[in-house]
Design a protein around this nucleic acid. Structure first.
Lengths: 233, 233
DNA sequence: TAATAAAACAACAGCTTGTCCATTACTTAG
DNA sequence: CTAAGTAATGGACAAGCTGTTGTTTTATTA
C-alpha cells in the first residue's frame, strides 16, 4: 500500500492512496495545543458561536458571521474547522467529554446505590455550562445532541441500575423503559433550563428521583384508573 | 391613515404606509386552494423535502435541491414559500393540524377516563405519518417540533388528567411532573420510530400507560432503595 | 535572537439566494 | 368551447457565502 504526498501548503497535507485523493487534516511539527494563538482563536470562535446561536439560531449562522463576531480572518476559521457543523460538533464533544470526566470522578466506593448522587452531579454540571446547554437543548438547538446526552445517561447510571433488576418480572420491554426514563430526565433538564433554573441541582435530582420511583401518576394522585391491559387484542 | 399601492407584480403586492415599505404577502383574485397546479406544486415540494431530509438532513438542503428534486422551476418555489424554513414550518403545521382534528374527533361521551384511548389514537396517527415523523423527530430533525408535540400532549390529555389530581398532595412541582411525562412520551415515540415500529400502536400506548402509572423503578423491580429526600439540605 | 508557525490579506471560481420580467401553459367560470 | 385569469417557466441579475490558494505579516517559543 503506497501513499504519495501530493501537495503540501501551510498546514494542509494531501495524499493520494490507491488513486483516491485524501485530505489528511492538518500539518504541523509542534504540539497543536501549546500555541496561545490557536487557543485564543478557538475560544473566540466558540464564544461567537454561542452568541450568534442566541441571536439567530444555528441554521441562520454563516462562517462570515462567526469570523466577523470573533474578529478573526475568515480564512483562519478553515485552518481549524471544516465548516460550521464541525465547529458545533467539536463544541458538543467538549461538553460530552466533560460529562465523561465527571463519570470517572464519581465512582467512589462509598456509593453503591449511587443513582441520586450521579444525578446531582449531572445537574450541577449542566448548571455550570448552562448557557451553552440551554441553547443546544433548546428549540433551536441540535436534536443530535439530545441523543448523545440520553445515551450518556443510559450507559452511565441507568443501565447499571436496570441490569440489577429482575428482567423476567418486566411487563414492558426494557428498551421502552429506557427510552421513557432517559427522555423524561432530558425533558426535566430542558424545562429547568428554559424556566431560568429556579431550583438547585439537589432539588432537581430529588424531584426526578421521586417521580421515577413512585411513578408520575402516583405522585399526581391519580389512583382511580389503573391501566387495563389493552395491548393484547 | 393612507395606504399607497407601490408595486404590483405577479402575485406580489407592496404598500407604503407612513413612509415604510410593507410587503403584504400574496395577491390573487381566486381561491388559493382550488387551482390544481398549486396543489400539485406544493405536494411535489413537500415530497421533495421529505426525500432530501432523508438523504442529507434539513440543514444541508438548498432551495435549488428542492426545486430540482420536485422538477419545478426555482422561481415557483418563492411563489409559495418564503424560504426552506417556511416550507418546513408549514409542513409541520399540517401535521399538528391533523393532531388537533384527532383531538376534536376523540372526545366522545363513552370515554371519561380516556387517556389510554387518546394515546392509542396518537400512536396510530404517528404511524400513519411515520416517514415524516421519524425525520422530524429524529437526530437531524427539528427540536422546535418536539416542543410543539409536547405542548400538544400536555394540553390535550395530560393537563386534563392532572387537573383532576389533588394538587396539595404533590411532593414535586407540577411543572416538572409535566415536563417529565410529556418528554417521556416523546422519547418512547422517538424510540419506536427509530427502531422500525415493531409494536402496534395499542401495545405502545399500553406500555406507556403502565410505566406512567406504576413508575419506571417499580416496573424494573428496583424497590430496594426508595429515594430519600436530599433536596432540603 | 532566530526559527517556526499562525494569522491576516486579497483574490478566485463556483454556487445559492431572492427577485424580476416576459412568455408560455394550464385551469376554470361563463 | 372559449376567453379571461392565473400559475409556471426560462432567463437574467446583483448580492452574498463558500472553500481554497499564495503571499505577507505577526506572534510564539526554544
Amino acid at each position: 500500500m503506497k501513499a504519495y504526498v501530493l501537495y503540501l501548503t501551510q498546514s494542509r497535507l494531501l495524499f493520494i492512496i490507491m488513486g483516491k485523493i485524501l485530505k489528511v487534516g492538518r500539518w504541523s511539527m509542534s504540539d497543536q495545543k501549546t500555541d496561545r494563538r490557536i487557543i485564543r482563536t478557538k475560544r473566540m470562535l466558540r464564544d461567537a458561536l454561542t452568541v450568534l446561536m442566541e441571536e439567530k439560531g444555528f441554521e441562520r449562522i454563516t462562517v462570515s458571521d462567526l469570523t466577523e463576531k470573533a474578529d478573526i480572518n475568515r480564512g483562519t476559521f478553515y485552518l481549524h474547522y471544516q465548516d460550521k457543523f464541525d465547529l458545533l460538533k467539536k463544541s458538543e464533544e467538549e461538553i460530552i467529554d466533560g460529562l465523561r470526566e465527571l463519570k470517572t470522578k464519581i465512582i467512589l466506593p462509598t456509593e453503591i446505590e449511587s443513582a441520586p448522587l450521579h444525578l446531582v452531579k449531572l445537574f450541577e454540571y449542566i448548571a455550570d455550562n448552562a448557557r451553552f446547554m440551554k441553547l443546544i437543548l433548546g428549540p433551536k438547538g441540535d436534536p443530535g445532541f439530545q441523543v448523545k446526552l440520553k445515551r450518556f445517561m443510559e450507559t452511565t447510571f441507568l443501565e447499571k441500575a436496570m441490569k440489577r433488576s429482575n428482567h423476567e418480572s418486566l411487563s414492558v420491554p426494557i428498551e421502552h423503559l429506557m427510552a421513557y426514563v432517559t427522555s423524561a430526565h432530558l425533558g426535566v433538564i430542558q424545562h429547568w433550563l428554559e424556566s431560568g433554573m429556579q431550583q438547585t441541582p439537589q432539588e432537581m435530582a430529588s424531584t426526578v428521583m421521586k417521580i421515577t420511583f413512585y411513578g408520575p401518576a402516583q405522585l399526581a394522585g391519580l389512583k382511580q384508573s389503573p391501566p387495563q391491559d389493552n395491548g393484547g387484542h
